[in-house]
């Protein structure tokens, strides 16, 4: 039986009725057309579906949309984070792009907590997100680069 739910998605309140069994990722993709968040395993292993829930990374396949009611969700489409995105481009931190939204969300979560992360911190932060293309090296570089630039930006801005 569909139930009403209101979620703030990328800063916009979305109200809809939804079957309880619809996961947050399916809600984002199928109802809202936000296809930037990807589905890889639907059991919480690959991390491709990661989004920010009230600012922290979670797996949107392990959350029914109704559970996100009255909470705030940020997807890759809503990542207002030019420095981070630019760093991913600069180091070519992707190939096929499928895990990229999950990596960006993981990176955002890390950098919000840890502005000056070590390589180990970065690897730990992205260890819940599988990438099959890159071997992670250029992703680690991108996040380190973004961290440096964000710190500089903080100082100068």
């Amino acid at each position: 039986m569909p139930v009403p739910v209101t979620i703030s998605v990328n800063g916009r309140a979305v109200s809809d009725t939804v079957e309880p069994r619809v996961t947050l990722v399916d809600f984002l993709r199928d109802r809202l057309g936000l296809t930037g968040t990807h589905v890889g395993c639907e059991q919480g292993v690959c991390g491709a579906c990661s989004v920010l829930l009230d600012g922290v990374p979670v797996r949107s396949c392990l959350l029914f949309a109704v559970q996100a009611g009255n909470r705030s969700v940020t997807t890759v489409e809503g990542l207002d984070d030019a420095i981070l995105l630019d760093a991913f481009e600069e180091t070519h931190a992707m190939q096929c792009g499928y895990c990229t939204p999950g990596m960006l969300i993981a990176a955002r979560g890390l950098l919000s907590d840890t502005p000056d992360p070590s390589e180990d911190d970065i690897r730990e932060a992205i260890s819940g997100t599988l990438c099959r293309c890159t071997g992670y090296v250029q992703i680690v570089e991108a996040i380190a680069l973004a961290a440096t630039r964000l710190r500089q930006d903080e100082r100068h801005g």
């Binding site: 990661s50 829930l53 979670v58 797996r59 959350l63 993981a106 730990e124 819940g128």
Partner: peptide, 8 residues
């Protein structure tokens, strides 16, 4: 688990 699962 991982940070994403510990957040839930």
């Amino acid at each position: 688990g991982h940070v994403q699962t510990r957040n839930r």
